[in-house]
C-alpha cells in the first residue's frame, strides 16, 4: 500500500488545480455555444473570487460566499451582455474591457482583505467510504465545489446533447438569423447563456479564494481565465474534451512542479511551459478532424445579431 501513498497528495493537488479551470470553462462553453464570445472570463473569475472571500469572511459561511460569487460573476456578465447583445458593441473589445475592469474592481474591493486567512471549504467526508485506502480520499474526500464542477459539466453535456432547450441554444449559436426566423428569442437565450457563463466563472473564482488558497491576493487567478477560454476552443466546444483538457492541464502543472522540486535538470521556464504546450498539443491532435470542428464550432460565434424589423 505504501507504494501508492505518494500518489494520493499528487492526485488531490491535481484536482484542486483543475477544478477552477473546469468550472469557468464549462460556463464559457455554454456562452460560446449560444454564439457569444466573452473574453472577460479572467475578470469575472477575479470578481467572483473577491466576492466569495469578502462574504465568507464577513459571515463565516462558505455557502453564502459561493452564492455571492455566483451573483457577482453573473452581474459582470450582465454588464457584458447589455453592451454586446443589447447595444451591439464588439464582443472582443468588450470582453477585454471586462477583464481589465474585473482586475481593477477586485483589487479595489480586495484591498482591505489582503493578508486575512480563512478556513477552507469543508471536505464532504462520507463516513466509511472516505476511509477506503487510496480511492477514499480521492473520490469521497473533496469539497462541495469539486463535486459541483463534475455535476454541472455532466448536466451541461446532457442539456446540450439530449434536450430540446439545449438544441435551441445550439441553434442560436449556429445561425441566429435562422433561429430568429423560426421564432426563437435569440436575445433572451443569449442573455441566459452569458449570465450562466458569468456565474460559472464566478464559481471558479470562488474555488480559488475559498478552497485552493483560502485567502485573497490581488490577481490571484493568474491567467486561469485565459486558459479556460483556450480550453473551450481546443476542446472544440465539447464537454467531454473540456474535462480531459482541464484535467490534463491541471495534472501537468502539478507534475512539473513536483519534477522541479525533485531537481530535474531542465530549465524551470521550459517546465512551466509544459502544461500549455502539452494540453494544446493533445487537444489539437484529437480534434484535428475538420468535419468535427465544423459540426461543433458555433458558426455565429462573436457575431452581432441585428434582428430585422
Amino acid at each position: 500500500m505504501s507504494g501508492l501513498d505518494w500518489l494520493i497528495p499528487v492526485v488531490l493537488t491535481v484536482i484542486t488545480a483543475s477544478t477552477p479551470l473546469l468550472l469557468a470553462a464549462t460556463g464559457e462553453l455554454v456562452t460560446e455555444r449560444a454564439g457569444v464570445l466573452n473574453l472577460g472570463v479572467e475578470g469575472m473569475m477575479l470578481v467572483g473570487a473577491i466576492a466569495a472571500f469578502a462574504v465568507a469572511s464577513a459571515t463565516g459561511s462558505g455557502l453564502l460566499g459561493i452564492l455571492a460569487a455566483l451573483l457577482a460573476g453573473a452581474a459582470m456578465a450582465l454588464v457584458f451582455a447589455v453592451l454586446t447583445i443589447s447595444m451591439m458593441a464588439n464582443q472582443v473589445a468588450s470582453g477585454l474591457a471586462l477583464t481589465i475592469f474585473g482586475v481593477g474592481l477586485s483589487a479595489l474591493v480586495g484591498a482591505s482583505f489582503v493578508g486575512i486567512a480563512l478556513d477552507p471549504l469543508p471536505q464532504l467526508s462520507i463516513p466509511g467510504l472516505s476511509a477506503i485506502p487510496v480511492l477514499g480520499p480521492i473520490l469521497f474526500g473533496q469539497d462541495l465545489l469539486v463535486y459541483l464542477s463534475f455535476a454541472i459539466l455532466a448536466a451541461v453535456a446532457w442539456f446540450l446533447a439530449r434536450t430540446r432547450p439545449g438544441l435551441v441554444l445550439k441553434a442560436v449559436g449556429e445561425s441566429h438569423d435562422s433561429a430568429h426566423a423560426l421564432g426563437y428569442r435569440v436575445i433572451a437565450i443569449r442573455y441566459g447563456a452569458t449570465l450562466f457563463g458569468g456565474a460559472m466563472a464566478g464559481l471558479g473564482g470562488a474555488y480559488l479564494s475559498l478552497s485552493y488558497t483560502p485567502m485573497w491576493a490581488e490577481n490571484m487567478t493568474a491567467g486561469r481565465g485565459w486558459i479556460a477560454l483556450a480550453l473551450v476552443v481546443f476542446a472544440t466546444w465539447r464537454p467531454g474534451r473540456l474535462l480531459l483538457g482541464a484535467y490534463m492541464f491541471g495534472a501537468i502543472t502539478i507534475l512539473q512542479l513536483h519534477a522541479q522540486g525533485a531537481g530535474v535538470e531542465i530549465p524551470s521556464q521550459f517546465m512551466s511551459m509544459l502544461p500549455y504546450l502539452a494540453t494544446i498539443l493533445v487537444l489539437v491532435l484529437i480534434s484535428r478532424d475538420s468535419t468535427k470542428i465544423r459540426l461543433n464550432a458555433p458558426a455565429c460565434l462573436g457575431k452581432v445579431f441585428r434582428p430585422a424589423r
Binding site: 438544441l167 435551441v168 441553434a171 449556429e174 445561425s175 435562422s178 426566423a181 421564432g183 426563437y184 458558426a299
Partner: peptide, 29 residues
C-alpha cells in the same frame, strides 16, 4: 411564432436551416 399560431407556414428559400445540425434536429426545432 405568432404566424405559426395563426396557421401560416412558410418554406423559405434561404437562411432557415442550421448547417451543423442533423435533418431531424432542424425539423424538431
Amino acid at each position: 411564432a405568432a404566424a405559426r399560431r395563426l396557421g401560416i407556414g412558410m418554406v423559405f428559400q434561404h437562411f432557415s436551416l442550421f448547417e451543423a445540425m442533423t435533418v431531424f434536429e432542424n425539423i424538431a426545432l
